[in-house]
Design a protein around this nucleic acid. Structure first.
Length: 492
RNA sequence: CGGGGUGUAGCGUAGCCCGGUUAUCGCGCCACGUUUGGGACGUGGAGGCCGCAGGUUCGAAUCCUGCCACCCCGACCA
């Protein structure tokens, strides 16, 4: 603590890296590409988990757990999926170490302990899950299966960044099985909607719902739905995905069921997930040059009370007030931390809680005791005011709601200001270089054009939005006919 | 995985080209005192296998080789 952050304009990516570490969210570990999520960062993830878990259960899903390891033969069963992940799989080949005869005190892999079949560390769990579902499904009466799992996965990324892309990360993956195509598709759309609602209402991150182009689609899916968010540096970030898998995995794993007409058919499937990457999205959406800005819904502590005092008597008197406030806040469901450390002075505490994004700060000192007031400071606007202690708890409760809304509105305005309709390629390039953000433009629907634009500008099609933009037009690159605008951006 | 950069106390750094006393400075840390409404001050103190492993040399933070990690750029990336 005690050092200023690099500012966002100076070096956005440095700002992000410093913030994650200084706000005590996470740090790099001794394992390449893998992070240690520290208690404060994990507390935020737990808040996300709790809300998502509630939403999943509300929509009829149950949690279960499947193994970390996937036998290679199962993994390769669905070819497109296997191919898509092949380059980033960690593989277990041995099951034992032994003392190294040539190197005292060291261990080596026991060459005798080679596995007959290699185990792939899951980059995602479709394979092991569909292999399991095969044994669970005979009839339409066994359907649907609506399961979610909270798990870690490993993708051997070449270039990693804390939360945004790590070799191991935490996520949830839902895997559902259905009797009909319509039902599976409806599930896919529903879960994408759940993600959108979660992002917007809970995380205060505005998102655009859409589908991926073929080249950006999940390997093994028929259609990939997604929510796309825009970060403060004008780059897009995929915040969640939901895949309609058709019968691809059912066919690969031979999962058939008898329908109510007595006919055998393959099961229809969906899968969907969000990960600890959301923590990165959270940081890059709301935070500023002073540190984290957390929406009240996600803050480990929504309020912090800092006592101002000179003598023990004053601390005692202030503490008594503070405890009362905490009690009242607790009754209203507001979480509050009392920072009565005597080892730090108030200014240092202010700075720390700002860095860590606590939404509201209350300072109580001798003057307040006389006047029956407190100083109330907002993290998001950096404003403070003196307020009467009567009715403080409900004032705070309301204010937290206001902050939550205003954070969303601010982010929404930013996104709208950074979404530009463009109709010619010169402007396209110029907007991408200067203004950044989403570019809404016509696209002829071909992978060739998509690829060409990517090569020339580094922008990719983030999604084909589900609503809006339905209009005839001409492709911004090729000039060929187009039926709707799609969203381009440089992406994380 | 290719190109470039960095690695010296918890953090940030000087020293490295051109090898040679006890490795520099700031922050932080510990003790005591004075302080406490926006990152306190004074005095004293502790803390280092100079990223790791080899090599060259009478002698290596410094030169050479290999490895590891992180950062930037590229390629790759449900």
């Amino acid at each position: 603590m005690g050092k200023n952050l690099t500012s966002r304009t100076e070096d956005y990516s440095k700002w992000y890296n410093e913030l994650v570490v200084k706000a005590d969210l996470a740090e790099n570990s001794a394992v390449r590409g893998c992070m240690v999520i520290k208690p404060y960062g994990y507390a935020i993830w737990e808040k996300m988990q709790a809300e998502l878990d509630r939403m999943f259960k509300e929509t009829g899903h149950e949690n279960a757990y499947f193994p970390l390891f996937v036998p290679k033969s199962l993994f390769e069963a669905e070819e497109k999926n296997a191919e898509g992940f092949a380059k980033e799989c960690a593989v277990v080949t041995h099951y034992r170490l032994q003392n190294d005869p040539d190197n005292e005190g060291k261990l080596r892999v026991d060459p005798e302990a080679k596995l007959e079949e290699e185990l792939v560390v899951r980059p995602t769990s479709e394979a092991i899950i569909w292999n399991t579902y095969k044994g669970w499904i005979q009839s339409y009466r066994d359907l649907p299966i609506l399961i979610n799992q909270w798990a870690n996965v490993v993708r051997w990324e070449m270039r990693t960044r804390l939360f945004l892309r790590t070799a191991e990360f935490l996520w949830q993956e839902g895997h559902t099985a259905h009797a009909t195509k319509d039902e599976a598709l409806a599930e896919t759309v529903q879960m994408n909607d759940v993600y959108a609602e979660f992002a917007q209402n809970f995380m205060a991150i505005p998102v655009i719902k859409g589908v991926k182009t073929e080249s950006e689609r999940f390997a093994g899916a028929i259609e990939t739905y997604c929510i796309e968010a825009l970060m403060q540096d004008g780059k897009a970030l995929q915040a969640g995905t939901s895949h309609f898998l058709g019968q691809n995995f059912a066919k690969a794993f031979d999962v058939k069921f008898t329908n109510n007409e007595g006919k055998l058919d393959h099961v229809w499937a969906s899968s969907w997930g969000v990960s600890t990457r959301l923590v990165g999205a959270l940081i890059m959406t709301h935070s500023d040059d002073k540190g984290l800005v957390l929406p009240p819904n996600l803050a480990p502590s929504q309020v912090v009370i800092v006592p101002i005092f000179k003598t023990d008597e004053q601390l005692e008197a202030v503490s008594e007030k503070a405890e009362n406030i905490i009690k009242e806040l607790k009754a209203l469901g507001v979480s509050c931390k009392f920072d009565k450390r005597t080892t730090h002075r108030p200014g240092a505490k202010f700075a720390q809680h700002e860095l860590q994004g606590v939404p509201l700060r209350i300072a109580i000192g001798p003057k307040d005791l006389e006047n029956n007031t407190v100083e109330l400071a907002r993290r998001d606007t950096l404003t403070k005011e003196i307020v009467k202690i009567e009715g403080l708890a409900s004032t705070i409760k309301d204010l937290l709601g206001t902050i939550q809304e205003e954070l969303f509105t601010r982010a929404l305005n930013f996104r709208d200001e950074h979404t530009t309709e463009v109709d010619d390629f010169e402007t396209f390039k110029k907007v991408l270089e200067t203004k950044t953000g989403f570019i809404s433009a016509h696209w002829d629907g071909t992978a060739e054009t998509e690829q060409k634009i990517k090569e020339l500008t580094k922008a990719t099609i983030r999604c084909i939005p589900l609503v809006d933009y339905k209009e005839e037009g001409k492709c911004v690159y090729s000039g060929n006919a187009s039926k709707q605008r799609v969203l381009f951006a440089k992406a994380y």
